[in-house]
């Protein structure tokens, strides 16, 4: 045997592999530099610019942005007309998140615990399929569905259950001539559009709860309800929180659904859209945009304190 212990390098790829083997950090640096540049400069940079803008103010006569630090813009947020927008948006986001969580849980639970093979494929397809069509198309489709002459109204008339819709539409605060012009309609479309973002993380979290954990709970004498409360829910909580971050923040920032469906009451996203566009009030638009960020930070801090991430 005369073969040498070290084989000759065959080309650039060999030499690069050898370099990465001798200096593992070089590869890591090469891989991480582009995304970190993107994250650092483009993403965090623009976020900082946004924050900066929110501390400027606008000269009410000339409409020119004054580049001096002031909290004046934030105090404007507290004016009743603006504060109403904040309360309305946060209430809607909370209601949408809660409804999504309640609707998503059984679906996610079925997919994680029972669905196998074809059923699992059907689940993924069913959840993802709505995401493949245009958001605008779906929203306008819902406008037709919810309209007075739409399929829901027609079905209710045929089954003599129109009184249900009528009584919902006569609840103080939700009064309207049809679902498509009522806040109830806005809520329904929000829930429909964001539901997949709640199901998927929930399903992933539930899938990580081993079956033996549920069996152990039953073995120790727990009823199904007790197992759900003391084992399933705490272990699935990180997934529920992840899903609620999606539904909550997406609702907080959306400006299209409340424009097309509902009574045209202003939401944060719509306010930002109008303020930076027609009104040219960039500082106030920025201040509005900071609100969802703050709310999410508070929400995460609370969730963390409640131990939502202990099982991670």
């Amino acid at each position: 045997m005369t073969t040498s212990a070290i084989l000759p390098a065959r080309g650039l790829a060999d030499r690069l592999t050898a370099l990465f083997w001798r200096h593992p950090r070089v590869l890591l640096a090469l891989l991480l530099t582009p995304p970190l540049l993107w994250l650092g400069v483009v993403y965090l940079g623009s976020l900082a610019a946004l924050l900066l803008q929110s501390f400027y103010s606008i000269d009410e006569f000339s409409g020119v942005v004054k580049e001096e630090f002031t909290l004046k813009t934030y105090t404007e947020l507290l004016r009743p007309s603006n504060f109403d927008i904040l309360v309305r948006t946060v209430t809607m986001a909370a209601a949408v998140t809660l409804a999504c969580a309640i609707l998503a849980f059984p679906i996610a639970y079925f997919a994680a615990r029972y669905a196998r093979g074809h059923w699992k494929a059907a689940f993924y397809l069913g959840v993802m399929l709505p995401l493949w069509s245009s958001y605008l198309v779906k929203v306008y489709a819902w406008k037709l569905i919810l309209a007075k002459e739409g399929i829901i109204g027609w079905a209710a008339a045929q089954t003599h259950t129109s009184w249900i819709i009528d009584s919902i539409l006569s609840i103080p605060g939700f009064e309207s001539s049809s679902l498509s012009t009522s806040p109830i309609g806005t809520f329904m479309v929000f829930v429909y559009i964001w539901l997949p973002y709640m199901i998927l993380p929930m399903q992933a979290a539930l899938e990580r709860v081993p079956n033996s954990m549920l069996e152990a709970s039953a073995d120790l004498g727990a009823t199904r309800a007790q197992t759900f409360r003391t084992v399933v829910l705490p272990l699935a909580l990180p997934g529920i929180i992840a899903g609620s971050i999606f539904t909550f923040s997406l609702t907080l920032g959306d400006y299209i659904i409340p424009q097309i469906i509902g009574n045209s009451a202003n939401f944060i996203g719509m306010a930002v859209y109008q303020l930076q566009g027609t009104a040219g009030n960039i500082p106030l638009a920025a201040a509005f945009a900071v609100v969802p960020i703050l709310i999410m930070l508070i929400y995460l801090a609370l969730a963390r304190r409640m131990g939502a991430f202990d099982a991670l």
Binding site: P210, M213, A216, L235, G307, A311
Partner: peptide, 13 residues
């Protein structure tokens, strides 16, 4: 009756 599971199945939380 009670069981000692193969993977112990202790509640991690």
């Amino acid at each position: 009756v009670n069981t000692v599971f193969q993977d112990y199945a202790l509640f991690p939380h």
